[in-house]
Simulated assay, not measured.
Amino acid sequence: MKTKVALVTGGYTGEAEVSYKSSKFVYSQLDKDKYDIYLIDITPSGWFYKDEDDNQYPIEKDDFSLLLNNVKVTFDVAFIILHGTPGEDGRLQGYFDMIGLPYTSCNALTSSLTMNKGYTKAILADIPELYVAQSVLLFENHREQAVSLVESKLALPYFVKPNAGGSSIGMSKVKFAEELKGALDKAYDAENTGTQVLVEEFVSGREFSQGIFRNAKGELVVLPATEVRTTREFFDFEAKYIPGLTEEITPADLNQEQQYRAARIIKEIYIRLNCKGMVRVDFFLENDTDKFYFIEINTIPGQTAQSFIPQQVRAFGMKETDFYSELIEAALL
């Protein structure tokens, strides 16, 4: 009998558009001989199963079941490809925990924690060989004095970003003091990001993104790194999703010592944060010092054919079909 997989997509933020692209690719790669796959769309207006003809059937939230042709369908596992809330911030994971449904991503606590960039940095700050940029975490009640708080503690230039956002939505690079107020307002007002803002000092260096996952044997596997080179000021939403603005080199040009060091650091990050499934760690390699600076961790990384993780899976010599099967089988253990 085939394993019934709920492929969960959609979401409540602007990242839903990316979720649909990711889930479409994952669906195309999943092994249909091993799995019965049901595409579940979670939106503010409702939770639905969508069949291949785009017909919608409501999900029963008591047990995440489905009624098809008067037959109740339940699932063996949820494959979460939902960027932003509620799929990346722990809410959906907490619900699945309550009803006893296994899933492919990090648990509720880790997912919630890692959506908070400032808290994540605090937990990782003492990992050997890993550095974190100087930063200020601003809450909603800091808004009136935010400019003075930043200027008193950090040196220009700054990165200003929503503390609980994704896809670089609401993010700005600030090179001049007069730009700070507008950048803070943009980050504070980003939709569904909790009105918290993280401001960091700029780190000058090469930017990398690297995946890691736990396979069905329980082994941690670090994928080859991708180097990101963009014509934009930084790797913003447009650079991520508009073709031609960014060059992505997979595998990245890192020497052997840098590769080993990155793998050690990324494994320790995965363990320290109690991650599960696949995650992606973004970092800088600072010019002149050769120090690795943590940027952020993504617990539901993008999964289009051009996304970093599929690129790295292919560079590792693995097919996406086998990779996704490993994630499902590991979740079922």
Rank of each mutant, 00 (worst) to 15 (best):
G14S: 13
S65T: 04
A330E: 11
A146P: 09
I271M: 12
M115T: 05
G11H: 06
T85I: 09
G218M: 09
A183M: 05
K50V: 10
E52N: 15
L285Q: 10
T193D: 09
V174P: 14
K32F: 12
T231P: 08
A216I: 06
T104Y: 01
E227T: 06
S65F: 13
L327F: 02
K32C: 00
I42S: 03
G118N: 11
A125D: 13
L39Q: 08
M278N: 12
E15G: 07
D97R: 01
D31K: 11
S204Y: 15
Y35H: 01
S204R: 07
Y95F: 04
P102E: 01
L39H: 03
T299P: 05
F79Y: 04
D31T: 01
E88F: 00
K319D: 15
I271H: 12
A262H: 13
S23I: 00
E144P: 00
F48G: 00
N192W: 05
L332H: 03
R143L: 09
M98S: 13
Y57K: 06
I266E: 03
R229L: 14
A190F: 09
V174R: 09
G194F: 02
M98D: 11
S307G: 05
K181H: 10
G84D: 07
N274V: 03
Q93Y: 03
G166E: 03
K21Y: 13
R280E: 01
L254S: 05
Q145E: 13
I328K: 09
I127Q: 02
F235K: 08
A315N: 02
Y20D: 02
E248N: 08
R214V: 08
S325W: 07
S23E: 07
Q134G: 09
N274C: 06
D282Q: 14
L68F: 08
G277M: 01
K181C: 03
A125K: 15
L138R: 10
T304Q: 00
F294D: 06
F208K: 08
G182E: 15
R264Q: 05
Y119A: 13
A125Q: 14
E207T: 11
E248A: 00
I123R: 07
A190L: 12
F202R: 12
K72H: 06
T85W: 07
N298R: 14
P102V: 07
M171H: 04
V136N: 04
Y293S: 07
P310I: 01
S65A: 00
N274T: 04
T250D: 00
G100K: 03
Q259D: 14
S19Y: 04
K2C: 08
R261E: 05
A164D: 01
D288Y: 13
E329V: 02
K61L: 15
E15K: 10
